[in-house]
Nucleic acid binder design. Sequence first.
DNA 1: AATGGACAGTTACATTTGTGACCAACAGTG
DNA 2: CACTGTTGGTCACAAATGTAACTGTCCATT
Lengths: 152, 152
Amino acid sequence: MAKLQLEAFLPYRLNRIAAAVSQDFRSVYGPHHDLTIPEWRVLATLGQFEAMSAKAIGRHSAMHKTKVSRAVRALEERRWLRRRPSDEDRREEILTLTSQGEKAYRQIVPKALAFERRLLDQLGPKAGLLLEALEHLEIIAKIAARDGSDQT
Amino acid sequence: MAKLQLEAFLPYRLNRIAAAVSQDFRSVYGPHHDLTIPEWRVLATLGQFEAMSAKAIGRHSAMHKTKVSRAVRALEERRWLRRRPSDEDRREEILTLTSQGEKAYRQIVPKALAFERRLLDQLGPKAGLLLEALEHLEIIAKIAARDGSDQT
DNA sequence: AATGGACAGTTACATTTGTGACCAACAGTG
DNA sequence: CACTGTTGGTCACAAATGTAACTGTCCATT
């Protein structure tokens, strides 16, 4: 019978690695701020772009709109972001970080970057190759074409 | 303000890639057999090792025991696997694939391997580097040390 | 302006997953 | 043997996520 070694199977390994890295990364923002991943993504996106609609956040951070909606509400209740209606299109709301939100963002970002750097440093010379390969994978897995269609 | 580009951030990219690849992979077994990922992992593990306890499956496939328990039940109801009590330890049950289960396994495995091969072929010469880098990442992310602690 | 389709965002409901309690069986100690 | 702690597995409940319907708004056509 043809066999498959699960532990060597690429989709499985990718999932496992992604989960483990995410889990470790949680130690960066978890203990201090108790964020979920969707909340972190919204925070990161708003920190990066200043002002944005929920729709645009979902597109950029590859999340389904309900996930964004819930994360936005949670962050709003925490007073980390504020909504204001858009003048151009009254269906959408423009979201921006409050000063509290920016403060949290400024606290987390250096830690996040340090975390990433540590990971890449540990990879040593292979780091560059990994990043190149991931870029290819992103294209192959048609992530570019989907633009937010992960939505999981 | 220090910024972070989410789309270039390693944990985010890994998650996104893993999700996209898993999603694509689903097209391999989804349309024909309608398996969930946990079910696929149990099937793959039993196909690989013939007979195993639920605990051992969880360890090998990095799943929490409740997830395994549910997947096992689903496969049992589908008559793809059978349980029998262990002689050595009457707490555990030895799980094996039925002939139906083996048949499904034999149908899916070649497709899975072809899927993986296609992915690696598309990566071209970078494929080997990716696999090497992933191996390193697996060690760095302490996956080896955890042995099933993903459990998500 | 009135009609109808598309779209941003929320909500309700269903499904999946995680957490902790639990049961029965083990294993060691006295 | 009891007694205690641990372990394989399940179950009930809670939390997270996906799906689909719905609201209000936009926009194109009439």
